[in-house]
Design a binder for these strands. Structure first.
Lengths: 144, 144
DNA sequence: TAAATATAATTTGTGCACTAATTATTTTTA
DNA sequence: TAAAAATAATTAGTGCACAAATTATATTTA
């Protein structure tokens, strides 16, 4: 009988933690953490966004995102602009400084991941992604 | 060009988070969190242990474990006993209450994971585990 | 159209994860 | 064997994740 709590649960969380920690150590010289990078990346990908939309895209809750944005704003990587269409919300925008930084971090991140996936075949990684997708899907089904 | 930051990094962390959140919601009636369960499970598996050994076995740092143990101790699930062989350390022990709880949680956890892995073949899950193992191994090599 | 309901962002409180520093104790070095 | 170095556990500080509550604003209902 396979112990999935261990094999899937603990080990997925552990792997995620170690990836995050590695990224954090490499991003430290840029005054960035892995979580903050996720937010910058989403802003770069989808353009100026409301916080709600940003939270959804980066899989973070509103409360957590507020804190992360506060930090990014304090470093002048982003700014919050009043949303002309809805006074309850802001549009979050990359500053020129933030845009410049984001561009250079793509390279840093890419190099790290080349090391992280070294020795794994395209097929192995593709299968891995399928399983991740199915697990997330299963969890969402349980919740409904 | 596959974006491994997204496909592997973000999605592994996301999946881990969602598993943890699901477990937390199911363990809440027992006054337990997923992380606390990990510690109880390790104690059950390896018997009375020093904090250092427990931290290693549960992939937590000493500081974090201290806090988790404080909570478990406050609920009388565990107790810290002076280590007769080394005055710098304690032996952490399950109380009868904690042992009883641990036994019943195994069943709860097993049912959740049956749902989490539903529809995934033994082979798929086995391959998934292999990739996790290799990623962790790669990360450890990078650190050395 | 006014009232009821829902929503965006923030704050508060709690539980983790991580690093650095600290104190008492043990181990190693010279 | 005394001094230096290492170690176990804890504390303090910072960054997240999550749930609940709150306030101003938008949407829906009757």
């Amino acid at each position: 009988m396979v112990d999935y709590d261990e094999a899937i649960g603990f080990n997925t969380v552990k792997t995620g933690k170690h990836i995050t920690r590695l990224l954090n150590s490499r991003l430290k010289p840029y005054n960035l953490t892995a979580e903050q990078w996720t937010v910058l990346k989403r802003l770069d990908q989808q353009g100026d966004s409301s916080q709600k939309r940003l939270a959804e895209a980066s899989d973070k809750d509103q409360a957590t995102l507020t804190k992360i944005l506060d930090l990014l704003e304090s470093h002048a990587f982003i700014e919050r602009v009043k949303n002309p269409n809805d006074r309850r919300s802001f549009l979050v925008c990359l500053t020129p400084k933030g845009r410049e930084l984001t561009k250079s971090i793509y390279t840093v991140i890419e190099e790290i991941f080349e090391q992280i996936v070294a020795g794994l075949s395209t097929e192995e990684l593709s299968n891995y992604q399928d399983v991740l997708r199915k697990i997330i899907h299963n969890i969402q089904d349980i919740k409904d």
